[in-house]
Design a protein around this nucleic acid. Structure first.
Lengths: 204, 204
DNA sequence: TATTAACTGGACCAACGGTTCACTTAGAAG
DNA sequence: CTTCTAAGTGAACCGTTGGTCCAGTTAATA
């Protein structure tokens, strides 16, 4: 019989995840150490590392949880986010959605970045984060479909990487996510060469 | 009589700066501790902190040194980088120049980011880095001049912030800086609405 | 109830950024 | 050249961190 996760282990995992989420909502990433998360969850530090491997692993688990809904909507949901709409429209819709998600998880994203940079083994690239890779592939494919002559891979990194950037993160935290989405949309539309270039009045 | 910097202090400062530069060229930022820099420079750790205040201060001094030449060219040099050319052309020229500079200092930029995120006081925003601010103001002003209807401040953050992004940094390290400059140019031209949108064949 | 492997958590470790302070030294003054 | 002193120096030290270890605990099966 295949071994399932033990009940106490599952309970502790949820407690850790929720404690980390709560702490990240109220403190800057640098002040949320693994030990504090463990204490807030009522478990020992060793337990956290046993379940998640490392600080990065913990953050990635948290991000994966959040990302799952969007991924579903993109892959099987209704247009324009899901399949069926023209590539340009899907791209803009996806950027809107991903900005909204990022706005709700600025602290988490910053903490993930923080964790990546402070971990002992220096090999952890962002390209090792499956969520980033999946979303980048999605964006790149849409750009390539709309404009095969462009460097879609690179443009995808620019559009998506922006959200991991600190000045933008600050704006998202400050409730300016509409501005971010609008500008990203302008950039995307301009890149794809739709109409006469991005015009706020015409774009809606 | 005003006290100048003592000769031994000046010598040590140069030694520290050069040691840091050399280490950063050959090791990932996470492996270049202040202590290692001090050892490589042949001084004690305390000296480094005395001269530069913190890890961030050291990195910023290094960046300022590199940035000075470009700043000069932008403010007083010949067009299209310097004053005189249309805003759109100046923007593209500046992006080219800043990509070239970033390509030669990927390690340093990563180290600066690393330092910011790991420092004790959590308040260090990138907006406290005078170089970033100066360049962002330059970019924003050019965008605003060419297209007053756009969110120039935000677009400036997107274009400039991209260079601090890890996937792009990897590309720059791998000698792909021409690709980065080309795509950034496409994005900028598309945003400003020049011609019918970015076309690799037409753009040169 | 007995077995066992997964789970647990606190002591432990090395490394880091940063601070301290007794000592050294450059260099102006006499 | 000697004196004076403030700037400069660096090694020992500190608190905290991410991560490891391992002896003891416990859920789940037979």
């Amino acid at each position: 019989m295949e071994r399932r996760e033990r009940a106490d282990a599952a309970r502790n995992r949820r407690a850790i995840l929720e404690a980390a989420e709560a702490l990240l909502r109220e403190h800057p990433p640098g002040e949320v150490s693994v030990e504090r998360v463990a204490a807030a969850a009522g478990v020992g530090k060793g337990t956290v590392f046993h379940r998640f491997g490392s600080r990065v692993g913990l953050m990635e688990e948290l991000m994966t949880e959040r990302a799952r809904a969007l991924e579903q909507a993109v892959m099987e949901g209704p247009p324009p986010l899901g399949p069926g709409a023209p590539a340009g429209e899907r791209l803009v819709a996806f950027l809107d959605a991903v900005v909204a998600m990022a706005a709700g998880n600025v602290g988490l994203m910053a903490a993930h970045e923080h964790a990546r940079l402070t971990q002992k083994a220096g090999g952890g690239s962002r390209l090792a984060n499956p969520i980033y890779v999946a979303w980048h592939e999605h964006i790149s494919a849409l750009i390539a479909e709309a404009r095969p002559d462009l460097d879609a891979e690179l443009a995808g990194h620019v559009l998506l990487g922006t959200l991991h950037t600190e000045p933008i993160g600050g704006l998202l935290l400050g409730g300016q996510s509409a501005r971010v989405a609008a500008t990203l949309g302008d950039l995307a539309r301009g890149l794809l060469g739709e109409g006469k270039g991005p015009l706020r009045e015409g774009g809606g």
